[in-house]
Amino acid sequence: MNFTKNKMLYGYVILYFTFLYVPVMFLPLFSFNDGMHMAFPIKGFTLDHYEEMWSASKLHAALWNSIYVGITASLSATFLAFLAAKAFTKYKFRGQIFTYGAILTPFLIPEIILAVSLLVIWINIGLPLGLTPIIIGHTLFCVPFCMIILISRMEGFDKNLEEAARDLGEGVLGTFYRVTLPILLPGLIASFLLGFVLSFDEFLIAMFLAGSDQTLPVYMWGQLRFARRLPHVLALGAVIIVGTTLIVMLAYWLRNLGQPQEKKNLTIDI
């Protein structure tokens, strides 16, 4: 069949792109709007909302909480996912499909179930709510993502390289530091960055478990209800959108770095 041109389909794809991107673009657009109401017509250009955002002290606290949670959760998730990915790519073992499924479930079941059940056990044990249970919850649902990213990266890994290093007299640790790590580093960093973005944006688990320690999405949720506070949330939203897009692009670039050409077309599990 001749798959060269199909104007109708192409037109539809353009429409689809518009549908994907336009809603997201409205937030930055309205963040420069000189007016209280989030409605058309747009009144004028202003940077006031950004200034207002800069001076909100609660926002700063929430931002630091989010960064702390994101880094801790994503580092732990990447580490656990790396070990798991190693097991899945290197060995054939009993119960392989079952364990793979088990590790993926936190990503598959409705998030509210995860959040609520963590809340129930946390309260029944009598531990104080705060950032710790949020980190556990975030690590839990970041592991599946990180693992899929790392497996796709490690499947192309040439085991002979490790063996060659061992044959040439490197120890186990030396082989890891001087051969395995440099090869897998881009994938590990990509996994860390995407895990960070996931945790940074996560709202539901954080809302249930935060107690009085708000993360950024929880803070935004609180502000969304007040029309007067909305503009500076939009400014914040615009900054977050630009920031996460840059991080994600960097992560994608790192993921494909140094991949053999024919593999490049396959690394798109997420």
Binding site: D201, F203, P217, I241, T245
Partner: peptide, 8 residues
């Protein structure tokens, strides 16, 4: 677009 904040 999927990676940008769900809430937003």
């Amino acid at each position: 677009p999927f990676w940008t904040s769900y809430l937003l």
